[in-house]
Structure formats: structure tokens, C-alpha cells
Amino acid sequence: MKKDIILAGVGGQGILTIATIIGDAATHAGLNLKQAEVHGMSQRGGDVQSNLRLSTDLIHSDLIKQGAADLIISMEPMEALRYLPFLNNEGWVVTSSHPFKNIPNYPDEEALTTELNALPHVASLPIEDVAKENNLPKSANVVLLGMAAKYIDILTPEQLRESIARVFAAKGEKIVEANQQAFDLGLAAVKQTNPTI
């Protein structure tokens, strides 16, 4: 069994934290893992992505092949679309619906939303709003991870929750609780919007 995931966003949105949590959970579960990150110039507000590969078998390539990703997790809707050529037929897109506009030629929002929602397997949510409403403004990325948990089915949500505790342990109990709460909000939101799945 394998799970090839593309994490996407804009530099500074916290996709590497999501990668760290999934990576920690996978390591504890004894899975093989490869995770290619972007460091350097692009981190200054440019588009960033990370290829995260989990498998029970040996993984060769650090990069995912085109048309082979099982899941795109994106902090930003346009960035989710950018990596569609990597998605496989049954693959899911889990994304924030809130655009991050730091370029003058950002596409028309309505057209963007229409294109995104026309995909057969998509879950989107204004995660920044959800995080703010619940007084967790810094944990929007973990809300997104919660939304994606169901589709990262090589790991259980409980394994991811435990990993959040380990990853944030150094920052204190309050931060751990806040992030676990954010994770649960994302998890519940997907159940509500897609009750049939």
C-alpha cells in the first residue's frame, strides 16, 4: 500500500508543518517515507510544494510521477490547481477555499472556484475563517490536515493526532491542545460536508 501526497501553498503558510506531522506519524507507524521539500528563494512568498510519499514498500524516487498522486493538500485554491497534472484518476484535492492574492494577475475568483468544484473528488473549506472563529488563528494549517486525515488512509486519524502531540510538545501543552482541537475541527468538517463518504 502507498500514499503519494502533494502539499502545496504559498511560502510561509505552514505546509512544512503539515509535512512534519504526517512524517512523524508515518515514522512511528513504521512506514517507509520520502519527503522532498522546497527551501531557499521560493520561500519568500512564492509558490511552494512538497512531495510526500508513504508506503509499506521500498520507495525509490523522491519525486512523485505525473498522474500518480493520491492526494493534493493545499493551503490555497490556485495552488491546488497548479499540481492537478500530478493527480491520479481516483485522487482527492483537499484545499483551503480562501485565495492568497500576492500577485497582480490572480485569476478570476469565480472561475477558479468553478474549476475547482468541477473536480470529481474535492473537499474545500475556508480554513482561515474556521480557525479564527474558534480562536485558533495560527492553526489553519492543522485544520486542513484534519480535513485531509480521512484521505491519508495509510494512517489513522488517531495516529496523526498523537503525532501532533509529539511535534508541538516543545511548545507546551496549550499549543498541543489548540492544534489537536484544530485537527478535530477539520476532521469533523469533512464528515459533515461529505456525509456519504
Binding site: 498522474g67 500518480a68 497534472p85 474549476e115
Partner: peptide, 28 residues
């Protein structure tokens, strides 16, 4: 892995190739 696969004669399936509403986002 794609360009190496191509050189080995491996074909890939890409269900979602037509992406419209995407613009480059350079760093700043």
C-alpha cells in the same frame, strides 16, 4: 521519474492535464 520513464518507453496516464486558472507566483 517522468522524463526518465519516457526515455525507457514507459507511458503515463494523466487524467487532469487541462488546468486553466493558474498563474505563476514568483517570490518577493
Amino acid at each position: 521519474p517522468d522524463c526518465v520513464g519516457k526515455a525507457l518507453g514507459v507511458t503515463i496516464e494523466q487524467p487532469y492535464v487541462q488546468v486553466q486558472n493558474v498563474m505563476p507566483r514568483p517570490p518577493a
